[in-house]
Design a protein around this nucleic acid. Structure first.
Lengths: 121, 121
DNA sequence: ATACTATTCGTACGGTTGCAGAGATGTCCA
DNA sequence: TGGACATCTCTGCAACCGTACGAATAGTAT
């Protein structure tokens, strides 16, 4: 029951990977972003804004067939995270994707490994 | 208190977007994948496997500086979702990324809009 | 028997959503 | 103009549910 052993099976691979792996801190940030988009409503809001350019809360709710409240809650999180921006036009508030909605680092974390020939070291 | 109104502010934009937006069903799938990777341990496991090629549970725990239990829990989810695969070598089980770890559709959902000139319609 | 990993169980935590009410803005009409 | 009313959106609250993680136990191979 070595639930907490301390000597690697492959020491050099561990050491090499340790240096290049996403740090705990960066891992948090990447995970935060992915978790934010890991909700059907929020993911579909991003999709809708990508297609429409900009939409107001009520129309987003109609497009997605969910409640205004749910959309509003979701938009607040997206706005706080800088994924979307808004502009007011009378009593209507239009939302659009921020230019750099998803940080490149996040996409890097999802794309396949560099080259299927080089490995450790 | 129109928390559930029924006529769009921009009917044609709503109709057009409705047709192209991520469906509720696809939205679920995309969100599932993103939520799966939206955890620091799991995101860093993917990162580590991307760098190292393959690693066993214990070494992954050392690389990430988390408990074996946590890694094992995380790997089960990743394995079930088809993100990683494993091979047994004696009593050690090595994990590696699946070829199509992250579905292209998921990446599409994150990449910026097509062209910053065309909009609706 | 030992080493490595998987599973089960319990628990604590956080997140999503609906509801109700408040804020903000525009419209209408005397 | 002023003031009521309608429309759109936001927020706080609470309930419900899922999920992550540790501990203990079981499985698998040498």
């Amino acid at each position: 029951m070595a639930l907490e052993h301390d000597h690697p099976i492959n020491p050099q691979r561990v050491a090499a990977t340790r240096r290049r792996v996403l740090s705990a801190q960066d891992g948090e940030q990447v995970a935060d972003t992915l978790r934010l988009l890991g909700d059907p409503v929020r993911a579909r809001i991003v999709s809708a804004l990508r297609e429409a350019g900009e939409l107001c809360v009520g129309d987003l709710a109609l497009v997605l067939d969910v409640s205004d409240s749910s959309v509003s809650h979701a938009l607040r999180l997206l706005r706080t995270a800088g994924v979307v921006r808004n502009r007011r036009d009378g009593r209507v508030i239009y939302y659009r994707l921020a230019p750099d909605a998803v940080a490149p680092r996040v996409l890097d974390a999802l794309t396949p490994p560099p080259v299927p020939g080089e490995r450790e070291r």
